[in-house]
């Protein structure tokens, strides 16, 4: 907008063309408006078609009893949502998801930071360590899940074999309702670790050396004091970002559940996105699935809003 005013002002100022100026100005303006729309248009169109319309569609379907492939549907108001919140299966799924997030997010942040600090403090093989820790994040989780399945196999899996060899108790990791969620969370941490580590490494690089020097002079030169006085506070923005991204990724965990457990045993490893998938595409209850999607969307939006708020106020130290 200010651009328009500025260039328009330039057009008017020359005194030798006072009569034509208002016409020229109008032509100039419409040319600029056209340019603005043609530049922003494609992105806007994509945003509407790929984002706003589907979201609106989901909201609309959530208010109907439509079943996938059915030729008729009727408006049922909030009945789907009432059913969702009354449903024991959904509640278990939500609690499982929250538990999973509560394990994965702190685990990923703590381990990612620890590895980043270790890599940063060492001198040799930095690129190598970076690469091997980042690999799980790059790999297709479905393929990796199959590898994990082999490792976790109750009889021939490496983990149980090792435990048995050491005389330790073994478990049927993916078929036991007490272990299945922590094991999935462990895989989740393993997968996101590299991502957190890379971001922490970048964050560590951007801490000015002056602050560590000042901490040395001020007497905060022990490992823990440096961490508390300089490193952790300066990593605040990065940590907040990792927190949100990993939380979002953890909320939408699907591949491991689908490949390894299908939500079992019972509902012990059922999570939101898997429930949504099953209701919509296996049971074909699209209206119900859409209302789960709406709940899911609320969680995601809430997280993002928290990020925007906290980031600006608490983490950037303004």
């Amino acid at each position: 907008m200010s651009m328009t005013a500025h260039t328009a002002g330039k057009q008017v100022r020359p005194s030798q063309t006072p009569r034509t100026s208002s016409g020229a100005l109008r032509r100039h303006r419409s040319a600029e408006i056209f340019a603005a729309w043609s530049l922003a248009g494609p992105a806007l169109l994509l945003l509407v078609v790929l984002f706003f319309l589907p979201v609106f569609g989901v909201f609309a379907i959530a208010l109907t009893d439509w079943e996938f492939g059915a030729s008729s549907l009727s408006f049922v108001g909030l009945a789907n949502f009432r059913e969702v919140f009354a449903d024991e299966g959904f509640r278990i799924s939500l609690i499982n998801t929250i538990l999973y997030v509560v394990i994965v997010v702190p685990g990923t942040i703590a381990l990612g930071l620890a590895i980043a600090l270790l890599i940063e403090s060492g001198k040799s093989f930095r690129a190598f360590y970076r690469a091997i820790h980042f690999l799980p994040f790059m790999a297709t989780l479905t393929a990796m899940a199959i590898a994990w399945e082999a490792l976790l196999h109750p009889t021939i899996g490496l983990i149980n074999q090792t435990l048995a060899g050491l005389g330790l108790p073994t478990a049927n990791w993916l078929r036991d309702e007490n272990t299945v969620l922590p094991v999935l969370a462990g895989i989740g941490i393993w997968q996101n670790l590299g991502y957190a580590m890379v971001l922490f490494l970048a964050g560590l690089k951007s801490i000015p050396q002056d602050l560590y020097d000042a901490a040395d002079i001020d007497g905060a030169d022990a490992w823990l004091d440096r961490l508390r006085t300089v490193t952790l506070p300066m990593l605040g923005p990065v940590t907040m970002f990792i927190f949100i991204v990993v939380a979002l990724k953890a909320f939408e965990t699907f591949d491991t559940v689908q490949v390894l457990t299908q939500g079992g045993p019972g509902h012990a490893s059922e999570m939101l996105l898997y429930t949504l998938y099953r209701e919509s595409f296996e049971y074909l209850r699209t209206g119900y699935g859409a209302s789960v999607a709406v709940v899911f969307l609320f969680i995601v939006v809430a997280l993002t809003l928290i990020q925007a708020r906290v980031m600006d106020k608490r983490v950037h130290y303004q």
Partner: peptide, 27 residues
Amino acid sequence: PKLRDVAMVFQSYALYPHMTVQENMSV
């Protein structure tokens, strides 16, 4: 450095951005 009985002022000031002035000076 902390045992040398020296104080230092840096070109960039090197103040801890997350601390208040009071906290900075208390460190």
